[in-house]
Write a protein that binds this DNA or RNA. Structure first.
Lengths: 148, 148
DNA sequence: GATACTTGATAATTATAAATATCAAGTTCT
DNA sequence: AGAACTTGATATTTATAATTATCAAGTATC
């Protein structure tokens, strides 16, 4: 049971071993806001299979595609969360994620709107854009379906 | 006369001096596909005032925002040129700029469609997105106006 | 026709991002 | 209680992106 790939089961050391990287690197990705691992009450991190896949994708973008972390953050900041979550205009006005373009939306402490009640780790915006290549195809479908 | 900021008037050495950078750097940006300077019949480059502004913006993104050139290219590749130029479906099928997400559209040698007849340097897609921060706001207006 | 530019290409340099090592202190778990 | 983890933080190392220097050959300009 619990074959659910979203379930957080790996400690940071096993995650690091599985990924072939060091523990500080994992902490660094988190500090930069690229990943949102599960946290136990004791503040201990746990990673799911989906988390590992996401981190592999991030590493490929950094190491193979040569896109810096700041670049990845700006790309992720373009995900139209306001559209996906159907924010109200009032929500948008108060939302740094909407106004800025430096960090993914899950980097901000949302207190108002839909995001105020959500856990980013379980949010569609976070879950559906693990691969940043998906962002362009999302915009493609928006533009192509607009006038249908 | 010719106060038009689009007119190519600066040689590469004066452009480099005005920008405070070296000539090889300017050639590098061009080789990477970030800029498309005017070229005389003799292959000599000329830069306009708009070109200089664009290059300043690129430099700020690289040096201040810490976004790598590969990152800028991926961001620029997300500009919905197919939507701006109203490409046909047939155009899109043949278009690398539509399918890939590594280079801005003006990096590809278009032979078919609207782009086949255009000079990228004078294209709306190139001209309107000198600042890559404009891309997100473009998507904002698309998503917000969609259901109006 | 001579001086000062340009071209592309390669090599060397500089800057800095990404990753790791190490630390003291606090948890987890048998 | 003790062995093996965890936490955050700082310092260091490594990798490599960004920039510049230099070259021979061609072009512009006076």
């Amino acid at each position: 049971m619990s074959k659910n790939p979203e379930t957080p089961v790996f400690t940071i050391s096993t995650a690091a071993t599985l990924l072939g990287i060091s523990i500080p690197t994992l902490r660094m990705y988190e500090k930069e806001g690229l990943i949102v691992p599960f946290k136990k009450e004791s503040n201990q991190r746990l990673y799911s299979q989906t988390d590992l896949d996401r981190i592999r994708c991030i590493r490929e973008t950094i190491n193979k595609d040569k896109i810096s972390i700041a670049g990845i953050k700006r790309i992720l900041s373009m995900i139209p969360c306001w559209d996906i979550l159907r924010c109200t205009e009032q929500d948008r006005i108060n939302c740094l994620a909407f106004k800025e373009h430096t960090n993914p939306c899950w980097d901000y402490n949302h207190t108002t709107g839909i995001c105020g009640t959500k856990n980013c780790r379980e949010c569609d915006v976070y879950l559906n854009f693990a691969e940043c290549s998906k962002i362009k195809s999302h915009f493609i479908s928006i533009t192509l379906n607009r006038n249908s």
